[in-house]
């Protein structure tokens, strides 16, 4: 097991190297100039040239890449061109809201999606099943931002119960943190409940397998069959799907972050792209990739725990 984790961690290195190379290449081959972005279109060519010189942008690309990659090895991501602070500081500052938003909305999605999915799978074709399936289609059909705006209008504007946006760190003011995270987490979480459908179909798959019939023949009643034989088997494919959804959230839920004005990674990346803030973009993409691979590793470990066939590498 330890070796499994270690090899997976080592495989991070080539993945990250490839991600680094690709982001660097894409950024530098797309049109746009950081000097223009910083100085504005009124600046003279001499001023721009001077800034480029200062930022090292006029050096050959290979040299730029090697310098950047060399910094990466010592965890030095350089400085933001625009923000005038080290990239690591900028990322860390924006990572907290994203991490917490992703975690909360995952919790909401699991708390709602898992029981609902299991219930509608077990009672297939029943009232609950049909209601749930209809509701998930509806929710999937509504764009995130629209749901967010509706929520803001109702809870913040009309009822005045919750703030309409912004971010408060839990270490400063926990109540305030809970208040401002409530709406975005619910909105994002509910839009994720579509994995109730995936759980439902996994449950249905397992329910039709022969060992479930055997379990009934052994005298188990339905709750016992579901608890002992269905859930764990149905969890195996579901964990993978949930894990990937979580990994995506860690890259920043851009739209939700904008709607609720959360200064998350997604927002930082989008703004940095507009500002041609190369160091921030590169490090941000790397960070997202790193988190994603980390999540898939955790998913694999959970799957190995759940499924002895994976564990014993059949």
């Amino acid at each position: 097991m330890a070796r499994f984790v270690l090899t997976r961690l080592l495989s991070l290195v080539p993945v990250l190297a490839i991600v680094a190379l690709i982001t660097f290449a894409i950024l530098n081959f797309t049109p746009g100039d950081p000097a223009v972005a910083i100085l504005g279109i009124d600046a003279t060519p001499e001023q721009r040239e001077a800034l480029r010189e200062e930022l090292g942008l006029n050096r050959p690309l290979i040299e730029q890449f090697l310098a950047w990659a060399g910094g990466l090895l010592t965890l030095d991501f350089g400085s933001s061109i625009y923000l005038d602070i080290p990239v690591s500081e900028a990322l860390l500052r924006h990572l907290e809201p994203t991490l917490l938003l992703a975690t909360y909305s995952l919790a909401v999605a699991i708390l709602v999606g898992v029981p609902v999915g299991v219930l509608s799978g077990v009672r297939r074709g029943g009232t609950i099943d049909r209601l749930v399936m209809g509701a998930t289609v509806l929710i999937n059909g509504i764009p995130n931002f629209f749901l967010g705006i509706l929520a803001i209008m109702l809870f913040a504007v009309t009822l005045g119960l919750l703030p309409s946006g912004g971010y408060v760190s839990p270490t400063e003011d926990f109540i305030g943190h809970a208040q401002c995270m409530m709406l975005p987490s619910l909105v994002l979480g509910i839009s994720l409940t579509s994995f109730a459908r995936i759980i439902r179909s996994s449950v249905l798959d397992v329910m039709s397998s022969e060992f479930v019939e055997t379990a009934y023949a052994k005298g188990l009643n339905r709750p016992q069959v579901v608890r002992r034989h269905v859930l764990r088997n149905a969890a195996i494919p579901s964990v993978t799907v949930i894990g990937i959804a979580f990994g995506n959230l860690l890259g920043g839920a851009v739209v939700t972050e904008y709607v609720f004005n959360l200064q998350g990674i997604g927002q930082l990346l989008v703004e940095s792209i507009a500002r041609r803030d190369y160091p921030v973009i590169q490090a941000g993409v790397l960070l997202s990739a790193f988190l994603f691979v980390l999540v898939t590793l955790v998913v694999d470990i959970i799957c190995a725990y759940l499924d002895p066939r994976v564990r014993y590498g059949r």
Binding site: E213, T214, A215, K218, R228, I236, L306
Partner: peptide
């Protein structure tokens, strides 16, 4: 009745055992 009075043996043992227990 199912568990106590009647015991069942099915055809395909591979499919009739839960793989995770």
């Amino acid at each position: 009745l199912r568990g106590d009075t009647v015991g069942m043996v099915f055809q395909d043992p591979m499919a009739n055992f839960n793989p995770v227990l």
